[in-house]
């Protein structure tokens, strides 16, 4: 990105909880400072005026309907740089839990005989539909991570990609290992960058940033098995956020 004039930024929401956008409005201390460097030109959740002339598009949410598919193509055509923001957008996240379940059955459970009234697809990460230039992982993304990303992007650097597991973040924080306390934790196979947010609060990592590249899934299965988890519970742990990658892209 050039640094001369203000970068025009747009936010678009697809299928998700919109917590990622909220995370951004919740950076109260930094928000006014950020606005000195960027112009937010399209952000439906917060503003009525909207422009389709932008440099960077942040995408929140999964692609899960035909209208989503059309809208993401339009955004990709117009944007110089597309960023997948949050788990739904980058890895399909919670929305993908239903991947691998019988889709008709899922629809019947919720809408019964009206299930064909609403056009709906299995949820996809954005990069399965259009090219994505960068990713901000997390459910929700850590504001510090978002700020670091924005700083790198605005200063013309390529945003750094984290390729090590949450355990590294946890060790840096000098946390006691939850596994050693008998609490099954997905830290060893989950992409870091969150600062071991959950383990630092004595809560097991549930893998919201997706699997780290080359995760040793079999070893993880064994560890969870030793923790007396049933096969179904182990699969559920993997499928909470990474169902798309464990079910579709094995």
């Amino acid at each position: 990105m050039s640094t001369g004039k203000k970068v025009r930024v747009a936010f678009f929401d697809f299928t998700g909880c919109e917590g990622c956008q909220l995370a951004k409005i919740s950076m109260e201390n930094e928000l006014l400072g950020i606005l000195q460097h960027v112009d937010i030109v399209n952000f439906r959740e917060a503003m009525t005026e909207a422009s389709w002339d932008f440099d960077v598009a942040f995408i929140e949410g999964s692609i899960s309907s035909t209208s989503c598919v059309e809208r993401i193509h339009k955004i990709r055509r117009l944007a110089k740089y597309v960023v997948a923001l949050g788990s739904c957008s980058s890895i399909a996240g919670i929305n993908a839990i239903r991947t691998g379940q019988d889709f008709d059955d899922v629809r019947k459970e919720v809408y019964g005989e009206y299930r064909y009234n609403f056009a709906s697809l299995p949820a996809l990460p954005v990069d399965q539909v259009v090219k994505v230039d960068a990713y901000i992982y997390g459910c929700p993304p850590n504001p510090k991570d978002v700020l670091k990303f924005l700083t790198q992007l605005l200063s013309g650097k390529t945003p750094e990609v984290v390729k090590y597991p949450v355990c590294v973040d946890c060790k840096l924080k000098e946390n006691d290992c939850l596994m050693l306390r008998g609490i099954p934790c997905m830290g060893p196979v989950t992409r870091a960058g969150c600062g071991a947010w959950c383990p630092s609060n004595n809560q097991f990592c549930y893998g919201c940033r997706g699997l780290v590249p080359d995760a040793n899934k079999n070893a993880m299965h064994e560890v969870l098995d030793k923790n007396r988890l049933s096969v179904q519970e182990i699969l559920n742990k993997f499928k909470l956020y990474s169902a798309y990658y464990t079910e579709v892209k094995k």
């Binding site: 697809f14 299928t15 899960s64 309907s65 209208s67 989503c68 919670i94 929305n95 839990i97 239903r98 379940q101 059955d105 899922v106 629809r107 459970e109 919720v110 809408y111 609403f118 709906s120 549930y206 179904q232 519970e233 559920n236 909470l240």
Partner: peptide
């Protein structure tokens, strides 16, 4: 016109801590 999300179906089979 929000896309449906099917949470009730997602919860099926999930543990009390999830």
């Amino acid at each position: 016109v929000e896309a449906p999300r099917y949470f009730e179906a997602m919860l099926r089979g999930r543990s009390w801590y999830e």
